[in-house]
Design a protein around this nucleic acid. Sequence first.
DNA 1: CTGAAAGCGCTAACAG
DNA 2: CTGTTAGCGCTTTCAG
Lengths: 310, 310
Amino acid sequence: MRVERAIKETGYRPNLLARSLRLKSGNLIGLVVPGLQGRGSSFFLSCIQEATYELGFNLIVGISRNDVDIEADLVDNYIRNHIAGVILSRVSDKSRVIEILEDANVPFVVIDRAFEHESVPKVVLNNYRAGELAARHLAGLGHVKIGCISGDLSIPLCRERLNGFHDELARHGIALADEDVFIGDFGYDSGRTGVQHFVERGTSLSAIWAQNDFMAIGAIWELQSRGIRVPEDLSVVGMDDMDVARMIHPELTTIKQPFDDIARAAVNKIAKMREIADRPRLGDDEEAEEIHDEVISPSLILRRSTAATS
Amino acid sequence: MRVERAIKETGYRPNLLARSLRLKSGNLIGLVVPGLQGRGSSFFLSCIQEATYELGFNLIVGISRNDVDIEADLVDNYIRNHIAGVILSRVSDKSRVIEILEDANVPFVVIDRAFEHESVPKVVLNNYRAGELAARHLAGLGHVKIGCISGDLSIPLCRERLNGFHDELARHGIALADEDVFIGDFGYDSGRTGVQHFVERGTSLSAIWAQNDFMAIGAIWELQSRGIRVPEDLSVVGMDDMDVARMIHPELTTIKQPFDDIARAAVNKIAKMREIADRPRLGDDEEAEEIHDEVISPSLILRRSTAATS
DNA sequence: CTGAAAGCGCTAACAG
DNA sequence: CTGTTAGCGCTTTCAG
């Protein structure tokens, strides 16, 4: 009582480190991403930071640069700092971090990556639905000769997107030929290469869906520099809805990936897992508290890079 | 000796939290940025993360969203986590964080912001030189009617850029009229507004320098949508050399801000300050160990958005 | 050179 | 309800 008043009056700030040491869990949440360049990572990071801050956590950011050793090192470091939880973005199959985290009994969530067999807590976009949305939009505009610039099909996420795209086109009676699918790497340059590929093969596409905005922008760039007008001659749809989607000419029609929802869901999940771990186990029937995967829905953002066939 | 060997063999990982508590300084470096959206923050962040990682630190990222209270709260939180040092990006004049950090005796560096009177450790771009480079390039191409889309002139950094631009033009016998300087806010939209402003006033510019790439891209967008060709009718130079500079049509000639050098210099500076603080003071003549401000040089990146006057 | 002990600032458990 | 105490895991200091 007396001491409490004194605390208020002095404006006392507890030493969080000592607290974390004692509690064996601190106020730090760790994020591991392969890189910050290529994708919408910037906005995404911003959303995660906001979500962590709102829940009173600090965010540690680590970049693995697609190196599983660095990745493991980062996570090891986090654990030794008594991290409260870890958010893993697009971890590779060879990654050891999942078991490291499980061994250390640290809550974690995988985002932006669909594992096939492993059962890990995750928050993912409904990628199949993203493909469907793109296909429905293009088919609705009357296009029948449609191509896709995909990511590597060994990545489940890309496969799902392509499946959704393919299936929805089929429902409209449109076939997606293998030669009309170009495999890119999510970079701007591979969008350009994709168009080069299509043009050189002499295919007469009237619409293209690229599986992210950067490839879509690269595609538009290459089309324009070859005198092919967008959308008059060819429609292009992107994916993600990055800032740049509005900055090019014509503004890019795209499938929006709601990064803010994904970020918030991931942080909330970790907070919940930590809570459950802390709670004293009253009995085995607590098993009902199972953590479910979160699935987030994409949506179509209509701009000016698509048009109806004439 | 014996215990050391045992440590090696067991693969023992020290608890960094306990270590930090004991040492009163940990392996965390904090970064405070106003936001991650608008500017080159993504690449910049990536560089800082890399630099911190190489020196064995973890990076905490905080976003102040231009709110001085959030900013202070973030820094307070860092301090209570025994942060090893803090990198402040573009702190405002009203910011209290500087004194908070000084009171707590925590090493910090200010980047991407030139204070006028305060003497704080900082790593800054030579902004005056950036203006000079843009002016020299444009003047060298034969332009004489040249405009500038600047940032707010109450920000010293913007003033310096404009001064360098103005002075170098003057050296080429070119006057920069007040009405040919538009004040933007570093956002894409204000680049568009700037061009609208110039066009509506009926000024017949043949070249524009925008103080960042986003404004430059907005300007190009607006010019193109009004049927003004870049660079045939009007040359545009940007600043920063963001990824998007290569993604637009025509590719953007710009003044490169070497984020990687700045990031590395900032982290090194903090590491050095911490070292000095730890070192037992042998005498007052140690004052020679003064920390100097680091000044980084910009450079011109030649692409396709500028051309000689015909 | 090795080992024991103190203490960083906190919380949880226990005694008054 | 208040106050004391032990201990989180480390480093540093001081004895042996």
